[in-house]
Structure formats: C-alpha cells, structure tokens
Design a protein around this nucleic acid. Structure first.
Length: 165
DNA sequence: ATAAAGGCCACCC
DNA sequence: GGGTGGCCTTTAT
C-alpha cells in the first residue's frame, strides 16, 4: 500500500463546518484525512494511527482556508487517498454517487464487481479517511435504514438533510 | 498463520 | 422488533 511521503510537508488543523468541528490533514499532494472527532485528542490519535510514520505540522490557518473552500464555495480540492486496492475501488465508487442521492452497501459491492463482499464493503466504507469529500454518508442499508456511521448517526443524518433539496 | 472483528444481508421467528 | 449463519477484508495476536 502506498504511503504518505514525509517530505511532502504534511500538516493538519481544525476548523468549523456545518456539521461541527473537523480535523483536516493535508500535504503538497492533497488532502489525506478529514474527520469529525469528539475531541482533539481523538483526532490526534486517529491521525497517528493511520499515518504512524508521519509527523504533521499544526496549521489551523491553512486548514481553515481549505474548509471554507469546501463548505462555502463547494469546490472539490485534490485528494490524496491512501488505502488498499480493495478500499480504493470502493472509495472511488463512492465519489460517483451524486449529492442528494443515496446508494446501498450491496449496490457498491455490485459496482466494484464483488457482489458477495457486502460485509467487507461496509468495513471498508467505515475506514474512509476523508469524510464528506468521499461521501460515505450517502450509503444506507438495503432495507432503507441508515446503517452505521463512524462519527454518529446524527452526523450522517445532518449531512443527508443538508444535501437533500 | 490464525483468530476476531466489523457502518451487511437474507432468512427465520 | 430480534436472532442466526454466511460472506469477505483487515488488523491484531
């Protein structure tokens, strides 16, 4: 699996979104993480766990600039997505789900040509490193119920309502 | 190498 | 509504 190069000026910072405070991590290669942690400590832990060999510089100013671009201007910044082949195929499929629409875990499994891997699809979606920009909140269960969400079903509902017209 | 844990689903009650 | 068995990947022993 590809790693985040240490020479690419990895940084992170906190900022405010319509869904609460987020932690965003980025480097010269693009955004590598966007999370909605309960506490800052858990945000650090999350980053450290995902990129054990990388030390990030604190830069709230740049973080804030990025967050404004995303949530105020609606632009789609460059992403630097790091994961296994299986995960990448799923996260790419997620990016093709338009805002305001939902899909199901089973449909994603179908899309990537692994119709039986539904359970694994759920796990991989849960491991999505870049919340919102990789729209894991648009995936619900086949029976129409919400399914799970890493940062709480509340947050998932807010995101869906926000996109629903 | 192997076990255990998942943001699931279909099927039963 | 709740419980079981099967499915597949990832992570931690």
């Amino acid at each position: 699996m590809r790693q985040l190069p240490a020479h690419s000026d990895p940084s992170y910072g906190f900022s405010t979104t319509p869904f609460g405070e987020c932690c965003i991590a980025f480097s010269n290669d693009g955004i590598c993480a966007l999370t909605f942690p309960e506490t800052r400590e858990s945000a650090y832990a999350d980053l450290d766990n995902r990129f054990p060999d990388v030390t990030f510089k604190h830069n709230d100013e740049k973080a804030d600039r990025l967050v404004r671009q995303i949530f105020e201007k609606g632009s789609k910044p460059v992403l630097n997505i790091i994961g296994t082949e299986f995960q990448l195929s799923i996260w790419e499929a997620l990016k093709r789900v338009p805002a305001g629409k939902t899909t199901t875990y089973a449909q994603i499994a179908e899309t990537i040509g692994r119709p039986k891997a539904v359970r694994a699809v759920g796990t991989a979606i849960g491991a999505n490193p870049i919340a919102y920009l990789i729209p894991c909140h648009r995936v619900i269960r086949t029976d129409g119920t919400l399914g799970g969400f890493r940062w709480g079903l509340d947050c998932k509902m807010k995101m869906l309502a926000y996109e629903k017209k």
